[in-house]
Simulated scan of single mutants.
Amino acid sequence: MLARSTQRLDIDLLILPETNLILIASVIEPLRGANRISGSEIYRWRLLTVDGDPAPTTSDIPVPACAPFKATADTAPLFVLASYNWRQSATPALKMQLSQATRYRTMIAGIESGTWLLAEASLLDGYSATIHWEDFEDFALAYPYVRASRERFVIDGKRLTTAGSLPTVDLMLEVIRQRQGYSLALEVSRLFSYEQADFHSEHELSPSTVSLRMRDPRVAHAIRLMEDNIEQPLVLARIARRVGISARHLQGLFQESIGAPPHVHYLALRLNAARRKVIETKASFADIAAATGFNSASAFARSYRASFSESPSDTRRRLRRRIMLAQERP
């Protein structure tokens, strides 16, 4: 699931009663955004409930299910979503189904209170896992065989866990980053005007930090300079001087704040700008290369392919085929 791939990834979401709508959206919307930006269906999801009936949510808006959850030989990653009153769903039958599902599923994720259910089914024994900050102490005491963590999300082998809705967005962006690269993950985050927290913050979660931490203002200044200078990229030393620190210091701040060095972030900004021009305009690749700071069309094409696993020409051909197929449908 987390290996670099251009293949479509199918994900099953088991939604328990009284789950927050924002929690469901935190899983689905980044994937929808990745599909939209990439111009292809690289993610597909299926909504399941215990009995196949629509799941009641805390917003009194029922979420329809595609099917009831069953412990079949399906290998798609399984995300277990829960917010409140998870114990009502933790029946012996469901815990047995989850245990049986682990024989086949490539990964199982506990999303917010879904972590409780996985732990109750003994599926987190020997794993590191996180939980909502309000529940941390109780969770750590209840499941001594689980290594309780205060991180926003935890990936430990075939187990994924998150500490809330916004940390779930962090997790989904990390899934996209590992599968399709930093450029697409960055563009998805920008689609929602979302500033991502450090993936591996050591700060404990609390009421004041459960929302996203503000980025270091020097990093924010540097990113604004990058965004304002796409056509003629600035060298790192010049950006650092304008921010008022050394290049080495700026590199460290980037790594701490967004989990990537400056040059990776800058290149992703330029490639994303180029990709939009490839998709939305008929400009030549030479013109697009010049407009996004590449010294030749060939250099642009190499970077584009390395980031998006297809050439600019491939992107345009693929989109033309989609348009033609859509026009042919009755």
Rank of each mutant, 00 (worst) to 15 (best):
M1K: 14
M1L: 05
R4Q: 15
S5Q: 14
Q7F: 13
R8L: 08
L9I: 13
L9A: 15
D12E: 11
D12V: 01
L13N: 04
L14W: 14
I15N: 12
E18C: 05
L21D: 03
L21Y: 08
I24L: 14
A25Y: 05
A25H: 04
E29W: 03
P30E: 12
R32A: 02
A34S: 15
N35C: 08
N35R: 12
S38N: 00
S38F: 10
S40N: 04
E41W: 11
E41D: 15
Y43C: 04
W45G: 11
R46E: 02
L47S: 08
V50R: 15
G52M: 00
A55N: 00
D60W: 14
P62H: 03
C66G: 13
A73P: 01
P77W: 07
F79Y: 15
V80N: 05
L81I: 14
A82V: 00
W86A: 00
S89W: 05
L94H: 02
K95D: 00
K95F: 01
S99G: 07
S99I: 06
Q100V: 02
A101H: 07
S113R: 12
G114D: 06
G114A: 06
G114M: 05
E120K: 01
L123I: 10
W133I: 08
D138Y: 14
D138S: 14
V146F: 09
V146E: 02
S149A: 06
S149F: 13
R150S: 13
R150H: 11
V154S: 13
I155H: 10
I155G: 11
D156H: 10
G157E: 00
K158T: 01
G164I: 11
P167R: 03
P167S: 04
T168S: 05
T168A: 06
V169N: 07
D170P: 04
D170H: 14
L171Q: 07
M172F: 02
L173F: 12
R177E: 10
Q178K: 09
R179F: 07
R179N: 00
G181W: 05
G181S: 02
A185R: 04
V188W: 11
S189V: 12
Y194C: 04
F199P: 15
H200N: 06
S201G: 12
S206F: 13
T209G: 10
T209P: 00
L212S: 03
R213Y: 14
R215D: 07
R215M: 03
P217H: 08
M226V: 06
D228T: 01
I230A: 06
Q232R: 10
L234C: 13
R241Q: 13
V243W: 01
I245K: 00
I245L: 00
L250F: 09
G252V: 01
G252Q: 15
G252E: 03
F254D: 05
E256L: 06
A260F: 01
H263I: 04
V264I: 14
N272V: 11
K277A: 14
I279M: 11
F294M: 08
F294T: 09
S296A: 11
S298T: 13
A299S: 15
F300I: 03
F300W: 01
A301D: 10
S303E: 02
S303I: 02
R305D: 03
A306K: 01
P312Q: 13
S313A: 09
D314M: 03
D314V: 13
R317F: 05
L325I: 04
A326E: 10
E328Q: 15
E328M: 14
R329W: 06
R329V: 09
